[in-house]
Amino acid sequence: MNWDLIFTQMFSQAFGVNAMVYALAAIGLNIHFGYTGLLNFGQVGFMAAGAYGVAMTVFWLNWNFWLGIGIGVIFCVVLALILGVPTLRLRADYLGITTIAASESIRLFVRWRGNRERTGAAEGINDFADSFFALNVFDKPGNESYQFLFFEYRANDLWVMLVGWIVVAFCVLINWQLIRSPWGRVLKAIREDEDAARSLGKNAYSYKLQALVLGGVIGGFGGMLQVISKQSVQPDTFNPVITFLIWTIVIIGGVGKVWSPVVGSIIYWGLISLMITFMRELIGTGAGPNLDRFLNLSILNVDQLRFVIFGGALMLLMWFRPQGIFGSREEMALDDR
């Protein structure tokens, strides 16, 4: 059993590209659900909008990569408006169904073969972020790895992480400032009771729309950084399961807290890679044949365990600790949603 590998995996993943990307997506969702009470089941749609905004700018329009970041933001804003204007008057569960339907529609549309020249259809778009990696301050020939303590990252990933975590810090800061402001107070009031907010003269609809746009754009940044890091965008990576992974992360950290998405993402990615690497190692030991015989567990399906665990975690957290693993019980008692 290679404990060194297990811990290297755990710590590297906990602060790696994935943790950064999902922290961003979760900051967005936390603004939607945690602060405004919007049941957004289509956060992955915003990630897709941001990702395709960048990739299509380079691939289809042949424009500058950096312009693509702006286009990605515009895509997210437009998506939020298209989604929000007609549906934010609907009941919460209808909004949930509508947003998941919208995110699936986006996936189906970009993978449509008729869009091959624009989105690359099912195969997606590759190698569009050279301009980004041209600026890599950690550049090493052959994209070799850096190692320190328990961490190990490829040169390109390190560059994405540096930029990405700065974006995360910036978004957390914005989030913190907004939530402590009167604007954030109105959002929380809408989450608690929309009618009460309206009776006090707050245009709940407008605030919900603003929250949807803000959270959507932040989610879009997550999508952009994800596809930039891989230099590849593919429609099927934006499936609804991703949205619910983001939900799990938000709930791990505790719904409606500024730090929860970041903490949740680090914990999730750290723990899940600890478990999976441990399992992989365990399969490699003498216990392997027995695991296969009694649990049907082998190197072939060990990765599916990741989803089994996070599905179960989502259930149990929502049931027993919707206030997050660090939240207090008193707070939960007040949660009358």
């Binding site: 089941f41 399961v241 619910f244 939900w247 799990t248 709930i251 599916q304 365990l305 990741r306 989803f307 089994v308 996070f310 599905g311 179960g312 975690a313 989502l314 259930m315 149990l316 929502m318 049931w319």
Partner: peptide, 12 residues
């Protein structure tokens, strides 16, 4: 949300 977790758990 719990049914969503259940759905993922069962599916995988």
């Amino acid at each position: 949300v719990i049914t969503i977790g259940l759905s993922i758990l069962m599916r995988y």
